[in-house]
Design a binder for these strands. Structure first.
Lengths: 299, 299
DNA sequence: ACCACCGTTCCTACGGCGTAAGTCGAACCG
DNA sequence: CGGTTCGACTTACGCCGTAGGAACGGTGGT
């Protein structure tokens, strides 16, 4: 098996100390290498200086899109309006329309630009220089870094209608779809196998990362708006005994561990498909087709 | 292994005949039992009669939310405004505010109501009467039926901020989270195992179904608006040889097969976790921790 | 130096949005 | 039969996306 470089390989048992108590806690994960604050990046601020008098920078499409990304990172998607974006760029709203056909196209451009951050990520390879597993590992962590860098934007990446039915989020760019298929195809995957792997991989990435940013977003909103339910917070879970019993476990943020374990599992299943020449992902049991009832071994 | 009733069990090889040619085709899947048109349901229409003079039905919250669901099913999410919804219900927009605090709360109610359709689904069991695998199978297909019945609503189900970080879409209801945890816990899963399974299950459901409705939505939009790119459709994929070569394969809609195979694989991995008493999902290889390089078996 | 030109930005305006506040008519109850 | 209540309607406000045109600043030709 090729090396799987990004991400800590040291295993970390599920119980890593005292269980977090109530539910909402400032989520700090000092070990997660995909988190922006662990990569020397500040949290999003109004990087666009307000009016910028003096020298007038002539305003082009890239500056508008970058401004929109910074604005959403700082204030959230619902706050983004053409007027406010113009104000943030020191310009009237209507000036934006010289470079952007409209709001929807601006959002498309934002999504494309965010996904294109993969090209600038030195840990993501466009060619599978160290095998397809390394390629998929790096790509997955690159997408995860994007999701965690722009949590307010990722739902947009996930749900904006793709250009074709087979261009699946979160890999919305033809270039990356081509790159991924080539990485698989040049490493022994048949056409069918490559497409099966592409679908399984995008489905895994989308589901996991969307849930991760949602979870993080709720937690963050809860801490900077400290009055969800006035009675402290544990809600009234009296009708839900299992939930309230498991709430400490449920509140544990094991997203990085889960991400890496699920990703490794997926890669292993792809490896098995490759080894056996099958055209679908194998289940975990030794002989996949014997589907009749085995003796139930429940604890 | 307990029976896995919903969904066709007969295997269907990936190549099921002639490959669909160009890309957009009216997607008909006569074998998919989760599709609304195969369950005796019509496509969404304006079920709410326009003014309904004569006898005035006094308009309550349920009628408003049902009207909103029908409206979105019929016209899409961006078309839903308070004024138009009022008009569809034969009422002024402001009258809605007597029963609904505002638009956001209306959308929350819509999402809750849609998820609650699970309770009315006779093929979904609230208690694991036939084992946890049967339970998860039925629940998964029930959620899939919801997603396919309300494709325009499912992105909302997926991305609306959950009430707590651990209430994960698409299972947004405390009742179903409790039900799922209980189904696992009463069938031998430890607390940690139940939570791990809950997370893996929701992540799988969300990723797969969101991609499925997106794919279906793009295809449907493409057929009832037959002028995406005027040059027929194949775009200019000259820069992407693998994509254009694989386009027939990529355009194949194998969503049902993929859904069932991925679901079975997940259930098998959960079974293995249960059997071995592990606290995480197992990879497919026999000895998971030997992570050093094996000989590369690429073709 | 002047001026015509032209690309960029700003100003004004329109219809539609969510919704706060007040109005009004019918139904109900003494 | 008068008063009260309640549900739907009307009006109004500020913000939205954006169409159309006016204002402006730099540039090249003469």
């Amino acid at each position: 098996m090729p090396p799987r470089p990004p991400g800590p390989t040291e295993e970390e048992p599920l119980q890593d100390g005292a269980v977090v108590a109530g539910g909402i806690e400032p989520p700090d994960h000092p070990d997660d290498p995909d988190l922006p604050e662990n990569r020397g990046l500040r949290a999003a601020e109004d990087a666009v200086g307000p009016p910028d008098l003096g020298t007038r920078v002539p305003l082009d499409r890239a500056r508008i899109i970058d401004g929109a990304i910074a604005f959403v990172d700082a204030h959230g998607l619902p706050m983004l309006t053409m007027r406010r974006l113009g104000a943030a760029l020191g310009v009237e709203a209507m000036s934006l329309y010289r470079y952007v056909p409209g709001r929807e196209d601006l959002l498309d451009g934002v999504v494309d630009t965010v996904v294109d951050e993969l090209f600038a990520d030195p840990d993501v390879l466009f060619e599978p220089e160290h095998g397809w597993q390394d390629y998929l590992q790096r790509l997955a962590h690159g997408v995860r870094r994007i999701a965690l860098t722009h949590p307010a934007l990722f739902p947009l990446v996930a749900t904006r209608p793709p250009s074709a039915p087979w261009v699946r989020p979160p890999l919305r760019s033809l270039k990356w779809v081509e790159s991924l298929l080539r990485a698989l195809h040049t490493n022994g995957f048949s056409s069918v196998q490559a497409v099966v792997a592409y679908r399984a991989y995008t489905s895994f990435l989308l589901g996991h990362l969307l849930l991760e940013v949602a979870q993080r977003g709720v937690a963050i909103n809860a801490i900077d708006d400290p009055d969800g339910s006035p009675t402290a917070n544990p809600m009234d879970l009296v009708e839900f005994p299992l939930i309230s019993e498991l709430q400490p476990l449920l509140s544990l943020d094991e997203t990085l561990t889960e991400f890496e374990e699920s990703l490794e599992s997926l890669l292993d299943r792809l490896q098995t498909m490759l080894d056996t020449g099958a055209h679908h992902l194998p289940p975990v049991t030794a002989d996949p087709q014997v589907d009749v009832d085995l003796p139930q071994t429940g604890i």
